[in-house]
Design a protein around this nucleic acid. Sequence first.
DNA 1: TCATTAAATACATACTAGTGGTATGTATAG
DNA 2: CTATACATACCACTAGTATGTATTTAATGA
Lengths: 220, 220
Amino acid sequence: MGRNKYPEETVAKILDAALELFCAQGYEGTSIQDIVDRLDGMTKGAVYHHFKSKEEIFNAAFDRAMAPIVEHRRSMLGVGNMTGAQKLKRLYAPESVVPQIELWARMRPAADPVKSSRLLAMQYQGSFDESADGCLLPVIEEGIADGSIACECPREAAEAVSLLANLWLLPLFRPLEPKERMLARAQCLVQMAAAVGLDLGNEVLQTTAQIWDVWDRAGW
Amino acid sequence: MGRNKYPEETVAKILDAALELFCAQGYEGTSIQDIVDRLDGMTKGAVYHHFKSKEEIFNAAFDRAMAPIVEHRRSMLGVGNMTGAQKLKRLYAPESVVPQIELWARMRPAADPVKSSRLLAMQYQGSFDESADGCLLPVIEEGIADGSIACECPREAAEAVSLLANLWLLPLFRPLEPKERMLARAQCLVQMAAAVGLDLGNEVLQTTAQIWDVWDRAGW
DNA sequence: TCATTAAATACATACTAGTGGTATGTATAG
DNA sequence: CTATACATACCACTAGTATGTATTTAATGA
């Protein structure tokens, strides 16, 4: 194949193939050759021209997939006519979470923590980032400032809620539990969060139910 | 090297070397050759005579390291003269947790979730196992049966507490936070657990403080 | 405005060191 | 004598590199 006039198309193709494979087979279970084989006609040279390592492909693929979701969550922060408490509920309302879940469902990560260990590590790391630099902690602090939230340990509460939401309520790396169990988890999280001053709202239950439906439809 | 009269010594040497390397460099970052190089004079043939794969070495190394700790925690279950609530507090008291932490501290896992992703995945998986088949859920159910614990969602509460204890209170895969922050986390977890009917007891604070000291002394 | 050329880009090809794992040989203990 | 505990030699495959080649873009001059 000769030189492409629009190399960003090639990059997109590489990232699409990589994302699917990384999710289905894990990072270590996916070889560069696997990716190349999905790019009909293309060779390893092309891949290593656009990316300098497998690691970089991995990160780029997920950053690209997550970008619109991160953007959507961030967009709420600037809004002026909402209290912190209202924004907090919004963060875990269906319209904020379900699009992310639909993306994950399409990517079909392996329901085995060890196979998906790298993805799991990213979600773990991301839970802390989300609390610190992302949306959750800023929203909580906004709520404390405007008097709509009373929380003595905002940072810790944010981390705990974020961890549980990402690694426990999202059925990413483990077999899908029965719907009632997932709802029980959500109810449990709501109670626990309330104990440290965070009212996540009962929409979390609806969110969880919708997540379950998406996951179930996707054939888990 | 000729044939050893006591092959279990060879096995022990392999597992010792493997454990240290897997912790320090992660699973993928450790090659069989790395392990062999630590077994002076021995070769890959010896390793593959005793273990059939890298995976098996990994599992055997950690099972061996964890065995005494698991045993110690299990030993509490049979005791008859304690209520479930008392046993629950015991599970997170210093004498139950600190030995485990000292083991981890000696192994020095990399404070990077991605590098330690396989260990992280094991801890994650283990958190669910601990709730389901391990000590936590049985103890809670014992407490419900004897009237010392009032918990509406024992399974969910156990999972949540287990996850937070293993992935948030233990400073395994992330840089060590300041002591006050770790104590704030512990306080936060105690409050959240109380909200779903589990009294972890204030010993958790002492446990956390001791864990921090061990970690700090180990040079994190 | 357009042809010519130079340089930068987008790939393909061929190769390397190192990996997990195996097949097989050999010496020793039971 | 046999089974075990190793050592030796090898294999297919991996991430990554060095280099070659064709094509697009930019610069130039008229």
